[in-house]
Amino acid sequence: MNPVNYLYLAALLFTIGAVGVLIRRNAIVVFMCVELMLNACNLAFVTFSRMHGNLDGQIIAFFTMVVAAAEVVVGLAIIVSVFRSRHSASVDDASLMKL
């Protein structure tokens, strides 16, 4: 199978994730979309690794996973504490830090 098809899939996943981030209001969903985008990147990296025949892409994919895990921890903590104080997980409600 042509590895380029994996790239098409990664681009599709990334787009879905990006659109989700932009249009969904629920913080959890936005968060999951961010994960989707990260994993789309991972897929692309692994594909590139395969295509170029070296391991750089796979190493970066591991990095991404670590960063994503860390991000999930911090992000979920913020979302939970916002939800506790405001009883809402909508990202539009948290728009107080503007001028």
Partner: peptide, 17 residues
Amino acid sequence: LRKLQNGYVRSYAVSML
């Protein structure tokens, strides 16, 4: 210019994108 800073995460995300 200040109006651009509306506080909505998604508008920031759009500009980033």
